[in-house]
């Protein structure tokens, strides 16, 4: 009997700490993402408040400067009634935000935490991550269409236009990192960076384009166009209430997090450097990766206090003229570096 319990305990523990389970569910997946969500939304409000010379969230937990604000918000969202308007497409209205939320998590699965710890160690893991990221906008379109509201519709339309324009610079700038390091495998890319130096120093152009695309695609300011409050209320989520609205609020932050992780892997050297206490267990280098991603996330939310928002046509012009050209140049730049490497 004792042996059986012991056996089950050990296999259970092994199963939990196996990359296939641990990565999507604990770190950097679901649990880590949720705690980041709570911190980041608080941080965003706090940063904006400090720059704007006010206090921001405070009263919900005075000793921590209101850090539990989002927990309280989530509880409120959970217990408030979900009102489903008569005019909506009910199945799509309810399911679309849930599926959208789940799909936004997916790219995290292929992002490795360290050399020996990846849920999916695939030859083409970069391409898989990019492909999974593009699922986002199609479900947002369903959300907006199902709502049967003019403001949602305009918001969805805007999101559609934007996603068409940001995906190309996103993929090209990611590919220029792949060209630079000669691999589509994210683990190999980090290994190469450990040897050569960070991608951001080799190809700063691609790094800048990718950063702008992160801000662009997760509707952070100045590209907060699909939700523009003073124009179209809250965009695709105008008709939503309760926890469904809460999901909608969190989605763009989760996307921001997953893209920042990818950014850290591609341009900031991933989990490198692996120094003493971190080499004890293969999951520990992930902390470095997480910190790097967090800095990107914090910078993106900080921009809320700096910028107004662009108009949709201006944003599209930026994407198609500036970002597209720069992304292409960065690809050529990577090729140039490769050629110099081969020649020299």
């Amino acid at each position: 009997m004792y042996d059986l319990i012991n056996y089950l305990w050990e296999t259970g523990l092994n199963l939990l700490f196996s990359p296939e389970i641990f990565e999507p569910l604990v770190f950097p997946g679901l649990i880590a993402a949720f705690s980041l969500l709570i911190v980041v939304i608080w941080l965003e409000r706090k940063i904006a408040a400090i720059i704007q010379m006010r206090y921001g969230p405070y009263y919900i937990s005075r000793h921590t400067e209101g850090a539990l604000q989002l927990v309280a918000d989530l509880l409120r969202f959970l217990f408030s009634e979900v009102i489903i308007p008569k005019s909506v497409d009910k199945i799509a209205y309810v399911l679309a935000p849930i599926i959208l939320f789940a799909f936004t998590f997916l790219p995290i699965v292929v992002i490795p935490v360290s050399k020996d710890f990846a849920a999916i160690d695939h030859e083409y893991s970069l391409l898989i991550a990019l492909a999974l990221m593009t699922l986002y906008s199609s479900f947002l379109l369903i959300v907006s269409w199902a709502s049967n509201n003019k403001f949602s519709f305009i918001g969805g339309l805007r999101e559609g236009f934007l996603s068409l324009s940001y995906e190309i610079p996103l993929i090209i700038s990611a590919l220029s990192a792949a060209v630079l390091f000669d691999s589509f495998n994210l683990i190999e890319i980090v290994e190469k960076q450990a040897a050569m130096g960070w991608g951001i120093f080799y190809n700063p152009l691609a790094a800048i384009v990718f950063l702008v695309v992160i801000i662009y695609s997760t509707s952070r300011y100045p590209y907060e166009i699909a939700e523009a409050e003073s124009e179209i209320v809250i965009g695709p989520f105008t008709e939503y209430t309760g926890i469904l609205f809460g999901l909608g609020m969190g989605i763009s932050y989760i996307k921001l997090y997953s893209m920042s992780l990818l950014y850290a892997v591609l341009f900031l050297g991933g989990w490198e450097p692996v120094v003493w206490p971190l080499n004890l267990h293969p999951v520990l280098p992930g902390i470095i990766l997480f910190i790097k991603a967090f800095i990107i996330v914090a910078f993106s939310v900080f921009l809320r206090a700096v910028y107004p928002r662009y108009r949709i046509d201006q944003a599209l012009r930026i994407a198609w003229w500036k970002l597209f050209t720069l992304a292409f140049l960065s690809l050529l730049f990577s090729y140039g570096i490769k050629i110099i490497e081969v020649m020299g």
Binding site: I50, I51, M53, R54, F302, L303, A305, V306, Y307
Partner: peptide, 18 residues
Amino acid sequence: KAIGTGLKYLIPRRLTLM
């Protein structure tokens, strides 16, 4: 300059009266 001004104001100097 805009981003720099934002960073400059990260030092708390609040106008709010609690």
